[in-house]
Design a protein around this nucleic acid. Structure first.
Lengths: 194, 194, 194, 194
DNA sequence: CATGAATGAGTGTTCATTCAT
DNA sequence: GATGAATGAACACTCATTCAT
């Protein structure tokens, strides 16, 4: 039912905020429940374990990122412009929902043991997003803006460079507003891909 | 005295292996001690807490990476060649000491709460390495190989792209030997910087 | 709610028994929990730390003693009779709940470091009881049975003499039933106060 | 040999200071050793265990108190004057060596489990002192100053009342210098005994 | 569905004691 | 005798998970 779905999302949002702020292991289920005014036990009516909640959170964020990127991919513009739009969209997302991006980079990328215990292993959780990245690269390659290249290298260029600035942002060493870096970052990505 | 120093390093090495394999929170002091054939209590004669051991481990790896890069920075070659040598050196390091690089990327980049409780906060722990990255970029800028650019963007290009491939390597999705990617990666980095 | 209050008392009672028998530091939370058929963790749902449990235990005993003494203070009898009644009441209490009195004298009087870490420091925990002692002395002074005297000296006479016999009782050197000493002790106290 | 004896005393003095300040269980052998500039292991050349050091400390203090009291007992003065002299001597001792008296009252009286594990149980450790107390009472009884009374009650009067003021002193609630209370205390003791 | 008290295995850390040097 | 690194059992406290209400 619709309600169940909404409640799951509310829980994910609450978890996301805390996971990203304090890390996965320093966030307790009890805190998540208190933060959203719900009982501990009730959370277990929606997610069978803390790990499963973490996984659902990843998928949630990945889907958001994928949706954004899919929208851009569908535009009728050059690939370079798509990259730029994606960078802008990503940085805005980072500013508006730092907890989601932080979670994506901090918790997911590095608490492998949390996400890889069973079948639907780490990489798969973000599949939607990764697929859109692939589309972005392939389209650019097909129309000649990007060179033909190994997907993994291309993937590293896009997500790595954005990941780098995300890390620096999290470390609070950036002096300027994030948007300032948008042009430089997208240029760097495009050059790396071409 | 010399001995105390050596013992600390032995402990760090043991910790590094386990932290990187299982994550910081899933590694117990007892495991680290068993892994190196020493008693639990004795570890506390060298490190006052698990956190401090984690910090020392970061510094240890950062120093190794910095030493490698410093050696390259001091060569009398073009900056592009330096980047290539650094990528090669990094990938080899990753192959030979996956636990160190893994630790660097997984534990450090993401368990901020572990490293940021006091003054010598996160970013500072890797200072040596970061300084060498800055030298690499600045030298290239001075000799005209790289464009004049914001340091944070340049930093993201180098460490981000390498971080990306490291992540993929950790996820075990790469089909080929790491060295295969060396040329493409260094090319991408140089383009991104220029 | 009523239940929470009752449970706290049950825990205190269990703790009291063990603390007094084995001392604060030789009693583990695990023992307390086993002794009352409850899990370790559950105790922490009621008391945030072992120290806080010790403090609550002190207050619990002090309140009991205070209640006994308040009842006597409210009687319409001479102060000498009050002292006698108090001694009787105290010795009976000591016989029936040796763990409580033992705790009061052994753990409280001497594990200062446990009780004095914060604001509600040692002396304050037994405030209720001490207040009643003051009333006992003041009343006797007002009606001329006791001389006008420094409170601290008077306090030492009452609690010190009873403390002495308590100590000897704990050392198991007393040959007779405690009640045998009641008359002599109350006489000594009254003389000391007059 | 003489040296061994002296060293043992030095250790006892160091232990006494720390035991009384922080309690028996919060004082580590390592602290005692550091406090006196000696290695941990070396302490074990003089005392086979922490407990035995605590016991030796008790005997040390008891002997000091006994010596003081014995000197007074041997004077050719009334028993009331003896009590007064003893109170004065005790309060001075308390002011000059608070750690010793504190230890006697706090650690000995209440960490029974430390002192009663084997044959030379608690009470016996202070035998010298207790014997002198008995002599003080008996002499007073013989010369008619004190009434004939149960030893345990008499003992409680003397040590209890002094114990009371010691406790209050330790709690830092006394507003005046200890000596102020000497006359009142000795009067109270004498009255209680007569 | 919702609650939150109860469980108990698990972890970081301490510290008396030993012993090779 | 003196040293202090090494040992390892022990303990306070945490927290994911369960389940009776």
């Amino acid at each position: 039912m619709r309600n169940k779905f909404k409640k799951k999302n509310t829980i994910i949002l609450s978890a996301l905020k805390l996971f990203s702020k304090k890390g996965f292991y320093n966030t307790t289920i009890s805190e998540i429940s208190k933060n959203m005014g719900v009982s501990v036990g009730n959370i277990y009516n929606y997610f069978p374990s803390k790990n499963s909640l973490a996984k659902a959170s990843i998928t949630f964020v990945a889907k958001k990122l994928a949706t954004n990127l899919r929208y851009i991919n569908n535009q009728n513009i050059s690939s370079q412009e798509k990259v730029y739009m994606f960078v802008i969209s990503y940085l805005n997302f980072l500013k508006e929902h730092p907890e989601m991006i932080d979670y994506f980079f901090r918790v997911y990328l590095s608490n492998r043991e949390v996400f890889c215990k069973e079948e639907d292993c780490g990489f798969q959780l973000a599949k939607d997003f990764i697929d859109e990245i692939e589309i972005l690269i392939d389209t650019g390659t097909e129309n000649g803006e990007f060179k033909k290249q190994n997907f993994y290298v291309g993937f590293s260029c896009i997500t790595g460079i954005l990941g780098g600035i995300t890390f620096l942002n999290g470390e609070k060493v950036l002096e300027d507003d994030l948007n300032i870096y948008a042009r430089d970052l997208s240029t760097a990505i495009c050059k790396a891909l071409s």
